[in-house]
């Protein structure tokens, strides 16, 4: 095992989820859109990461982006978002499959968006 394999930080992060690796309830995609629908006045039972997620998702945000902004692993992010959904604080909308979604307008936008980079 090398230093790169040091599981220390991961184990610490894993404590955030109380050892859970899967979110409660129905599973959801890494690009599902999360929207905060309610902010608790007294965030009982929420940790700082939960609260940050509620702030971020006041603007509808994909799961992966929540992870990126908080620099948390995706699966841990997903477990914490699952908690917020269970509490009725966020909604998580399944993405439409790309093949159904992409029409000429979106295709054109995506193409131009890539070229513009």
């Amino acid at each position: 095992m090398t230093d790169d394999d040091d599981p220390g930080p991961l184990v610490r992060l894993f404590g955030l989820t109380g050892g859970r690796v899967r979110p409660s309830g129905e599973t959801f995609d890494l690009v599902a859109i999360v929207t905060t629908v309610s902010m608790p006045f007294e965030p009982v039972g929420l940790n700082p990461e939960h609260e940050s997620m509620l702030d971020i998702c006041l603007r509808p945000t994909p799961v992966a982006d929540v992870a990126a902004q908080l620099r948390l692993p995706l699966n841990i992010t997903r477990v914490l978002l699952g908690d917020l959904r269970r509490e009725g604080l966020v909604t998580i909308d399944a993405p439409r499959p790309a093949q159904q979604l992409i029409d000429e307008r979106i295709y054109r936008e995506v193409l131009h968006g890539i070229r513009r980079l």
Partner: peptide
């Protein structure tokens, strides 16, 4: 019942914003 953790996997992802409300994610 949660499974026992046995492994980690590396995952890279990046984002391209096409416009407000339309993103492209690379995994």
């Amino acid at each position: 019942v949660e499974g026992k953790i046995t492994t980690t996997v590396a995952l890279d992802f990046g984002r391209i914003t096409i416009r407000e409300g339309l993103w492209l994610y690379l995994f």
